[in-house]
């Protein structure tokens, strides 16, 4: 996307009320905003933060699943997991390229991830202890991601919306292959079913925390809704996810680890028990069980890849020089 000219440029616009009003009018008319259009600095900053965080989540999300590729129980499962992890890498790249249209470079974003300034989804700071976790991640974590991402396909910022359309097309396979893994275990031996239940017990609460704090405690929500970056609130999306997931667990004969979970006829949805927000904030602030390992793994990959990047650039330079000499 046409970002090169913007990188490093000062994106500041003089934001008079008239400017902000004109921008809001475009948003309200469901016009898409494209890279070189005038936009409030806050809109740009919000998107850079959100898309960057989203991209990092895709990349870091490759780690908990990647460590099971060599241990997948069959060739069929291995091929599917390999394809899924490769997709997540692709999602990260679509998103970095969407963020780059806003005047930030991928290198800058990578550095912010590695030095801890940028965040990624805290779900990936939990460990994948058993094969069942690979199934549960596809089913619940990708499932929750889909709930979040489908409305983002209509986000007001064109490049982000377009990237999300590609991502959403690919996500449905992720969730289905995960559910199939859990289903195979749930219908298997007693031990296998117990493994699936144990995995659901560990991943359920972190998954519903993926939607973020309750609406009343969510900082950036109102402005993001007004700018149509976000289309539904955290609680609305969480509700949709729970309503969709409970029958899927019932079908498997697995129990969702929430004793307060019950159908509420009046609201036509499930009520759930209290969420442990202390744990949520602990993990967001980097105290998740795997937080150090994840960043360490990314840092190692980046450092170990330095000679490859240098060699590629040197090779490109050599080819260019040779071509010029031949002309």
């Amino acid at each position: 996307m046409y970002s090169q000219g913007l990188i490093g440029a000062d994106g500041r616009s003089e934001e008079t009320q008239a400017f902000l009003d004109a921008f809001q009018k475009r948003i309200d008319a469901e016009e898409k905003i494209e890279p070189n259009d005038p936009m409030p600095e806050g809109y740009r900053r919000t998107l850079v933060r959100q898309i960057g965080q989203h991209a990092h989540s895709e990349i870091v999300g490759m780690l908990p699943e990647g460590n099971w590729i060599t241990r997948a129980p069959s060739l069929r499962r291995k091929a599917a997991l390999l394809a899924k992890v490769q997709d997540e890498g692709g999602h990260g790249l679509y998103l970095y390229s969407a963020a780059e249209t806003l005047g930030v470079s991928r290198k800058q974003m990578t550095e912010e991830l590695l030095d801890g300034r940028a965040k990624y989804s805290s779900i990936f700071n939990y460990p994948t202890l058993s094969w069942a976790d690979i199934g549960t991640i596809g089913w619940l974590v990708d499932g929750a991601a889909i709930m979040n991402q489908i409305p983002l396909c209509r986000c007001s910022y064109g490049p982000y919306a377009r990237a999300m359309i590609r991502v959403c097309k690919e996500e449905s396979f992720h969730q289905r292959q995960g559910y199939e893994i859990v289903m195979t275990l749930a219908q298997g031996t007693t031990d296998q079913k117990a493994m699936a239940q144990d995995s659901l017990n560990r991943w359920w609460w972190p998954s519903i925390m993926m939607f973020g704090p309750h609406d009343a405690d969510s900082q950036h929500s109102d402005q993001s809704m007004a700018w149509k970056i976000k289309r539904f609130t955290n609680d609305e999306l969480r509700q949709k996810f729970i309503d969709a997931t409970v029958p899927q667990a019932e079908y498997l004969g697995l129990t969702i680890p929430d004793p307060d979970l019950k159908w509420n006829e009046e609201k036509n949805g499930y009520d759930h028990g209290p969420i442990d927000w202390d744990e949520f904030w602990r993990v967001v602030k980097g105290h998740g069980p795997m937080a150090k390992d994840r960043v360490k793994a990314r840092k190692k990959a980046w450092d170990d890849g330095a000679w490859v990047r240098d060699a590629a650039l040197a090779h490109a330079e050599k080819r260019r020089a040779r071509k010029m000499a031949a002309e």
């Binding site: 996307m1 997709d87 969407a98 991928r106 490109a316």
Partner: peptide, 25 residues
């Protein structure tokens, strides 16, 4: 049709990366 962008040292690597990133299906 424009589908997105990527980083690569030269056009050969850009084509390879484009195939991997944008044409998996």
């Amino acid at each position: 049709k424009h589908v997105g962008s990527l980083h690569a040292a030269d056009e050969v690597m850009a084509l390879n990366a484009a195939r991997d990133v944008y044409t998996r299906r």
